[in-house]
Amino acid sequence: MKKIVLPGDEMYDKPVRANHTYVEGGRTFSKVLGIYNEEKDELVPLEGAWHPRVGNSIVGIVASVDRSTSSIELRHSSYGILINDRMSRYSPRKGDIVESVVKSIERKSVPVMDRVRPIDGPPLLIYVKPAKVPRLLGRNDSMVKQIEELTDTRIVAGLNGFVAVSGRGINMAVASIRKIESEAHTYGLTDRIREMLISMKNDS
């Protein structure tokens, strides 16, 4: 069973350490508007802006390149820092679309980036609500792989919400991404996406 919970809803009548919850007066409450999956005993937020955590994979755009550092735009007016590494095979250029990983968080909110790689293309860059990116990826990336195969595209989805799409069936891929974004909370989505893409292919 899945159910939607609101901030302040009681999750457990005892103190429990669980994501997106807090404990008060010996009980545990949800912090977020989320969906609770009873079988997996897991609370997943339904909405929310992205907040950098160490290890997050992101997609961004190189916004500026200075002598020792570069900045990478990760969301609206928000940047990650990259320490330029002369030994690296890739030297960033302004305007490049890149994938990268958050290595650390400085001053509590500034992400420092690592393992920066350019995404070839140039790809089409779209924005997906960050809370929906995990559903777009699917378990072990199963959802995104399915779309790539059926549309002959390459998709790189960053947890910050930017998604780079390149290849032949860009329009179909984007249509399926938008469907996932609006139906992320529903059952049987993987099958519905497959059916949609197959019928789109047959039509064209």
Binding site: I61, A63, E73, H76, S77, G95, L124, L125
Partner: peptide, 12 residues
């Protein structure tokens, strides 16, 4: 949103 807008512009 400098970089992103330039990019979208080129695509458009």
């Amino acid at each position: 949103m400098g970089g992103i807008n330039e990019l979208k512009g080129a695509y458009i």
